[in-house]
Write a protein that binds this DNA or RNA. Structure first.
Lengths: 191, 191
DNA sequence: AGCGGAACTGGAATCCGATTCCGTTTAACC
DNA sequence: GGTTAAACGGAATCGGATTCCAGTTCCGCT
């Protein structure tokens, strides 16, 4: 493919240090939020990344945006898992269950991010770049599962989205055994 | 003899104006949070209640505590509904569905409180005064529903709690049609 | 039918953390 | 090497929750 370029021509290559710092900040944020959850503060992230606060804000216009960016990374990983592990499952129902389970796993491992991912999967988010792909996987599994007769005909992707949104909350608030939640939710889609 | 208590008894009746102000603040908070959601600020509440900020803080040690207090009122109302409308249902399964539906209704009507109620139903909350009663109702319905064979034998109150927690999130983030969510969740408990 | 003082009140002051601003530094292009 | 736009750092600003306290009000007693 043609090298990346904007439509209007390339005024200048992005500075190397800028790109490096962006990555550093993102990595640091991931780590800090994992460790301290919602408590984590912007200066902490900056310090962990070894940059000034200003730099953090240069790359991410707000705390929320930073969290969202980290969340999107996660989403990407989830999508990847879904494509490689769940779509090829023997039965689509199993694949869907594994998909949900994996999402739970990720959220559980990074409690601090739950809120963000919750939000990302909720409808608040404007873009939905990665979300669309995540939903696409769920959609494919759902279609196949219907063909297999393992899922009610009237089930929709939206139902899965709501399950995920709920899952995030269950994990975030530690409302109970989230694996049970996933199992029940799957059962709720059966004919 | 004079009934004056010596040690642990009631040192004094709470001052009338204090109680009045507490109520005013609580009512104002309910209204302000309903109208403006999470955005609502403490000074707004104080103004709406016609008291100073200090007074708000005298009665509720923090913003979170105030929100929690409002949430508990809601919880009480939900419990009341559960007792009078759901427990007497023809079938326990219907009662349970109605209970969940009602919770959804309340949360939907007051988007701004969703977060608090979510939290109150999650395990974050220490007390669980009203929550215990809310769970008790769910528990009774669950037992009866099992007897009726409308719910799986291994279903627990915890499962319902998770459903409610998820429901709150679905509504809060507008993740989809929450009535469908409730229907699916109920289906997930069937044998 | 008034007094003493604890409890309550209002709002100014404080604190804390996100966000902005701007002089300085650096990498890309010539 | 020189020019310049972009990126950097961190001090300053801003917004909103929370604390503090001097003044006021009710309660219990006489």
């Amino acid at each position: 493919m043609a090298p990346s370029s904007t439509s209007a021509g390339s005024p200048r290559r992005p500075r190397a240090d800028a790109e490096r710092n962006r990555t550093r900040v993102l990595d640091a944020a991931r780590e800090v939020f994992r460790a301290r959850g919602d408590e984590a503060q912007m200066p902490e992230v900056a310090r962990a990344a070894g940059v000034g606060i200003g730099t953090v804000y240069r790359h991410f216009p707000s705390r929320a945006a930073l969290i969202a960016a980290v969340g999107e990374q996660r989403q990407a990983e989830i999508v990847e898992f879904g494509r490689t592990r769940c779509l090829p499952s023997a039965t689509a129902a199993d694949g869907l269950a594994a998909y949900l389970e994996h999402i739970g796993e990720v959220l559980d491992a990074e409690r601090g991010l739950s809120a963000s991912i919750e939000a990302a999967f909720g409808s608040t988010e404007p873009t939905g770049e990665g979300r669309a792909r995540a939903e696409d996987i769920a959609g494919q599994l759902l279609v196949r599962a219907k063909e297999e007769g393992a899922v009610r005909e009237d089930a929709e992707v939206g139902d899965v989205v709501m399950i995920v949104c709920g899952l995030a909350a269950v994990i975030r608030y530690g409302a109970g055994d989230w694996r049970r939640y996933v199992r029940n939710a799957c059962a709720g889609l059966r004919p």
